[in-house]
């Protein structure tokens, strides 16, 4: 049973790849399980997730009206 367990250091080491969904199913599930039971790692994971959300929001920008007009004009002529 312990063979299935994963240590905090391993979780932290692979946290980004976990969040990027780059790990295989098995490892991913073990990390998820660990996060449910380990407050420290959970807090860390929540932090990285929140930061990622902030980065994502920072990328949101409204297209300038000039660009929208340019695109409409272009498509008119397609």
């Amino acid at each position: 049973m312990n063979a299935q367990r994963i240590r905090c250091e391993e979780v932290i080491e692979q946290l980004f790849e976990f969040l990027d969904q780059e790990l295989d199913e098995d490892l991913s599930q073990r990390i998820e399980h660990h996060l449910k039971h380990c407050r420290d790692c959970f807090t860390r994971a929540e932090f990285e997730k929140r930061l990622r959300e902030r980065i994502d929001q920072a990328a949101e920008t409204r297209a300038p009206e000039a660009l929208r007009r340019r695109l409409r004009r272009m498509i008119e002529e397609f």
Partner: peptide, 13 residues
């Protein structure tokens, strides 16, 4: 294109 313009531009920026 009109619907996706904000995201296209935001990503490109």
């Amino acid at each position: 294109i009109d619907r996706l313009a904000d995201r296209l531009y935001g990503t490109a920026l």
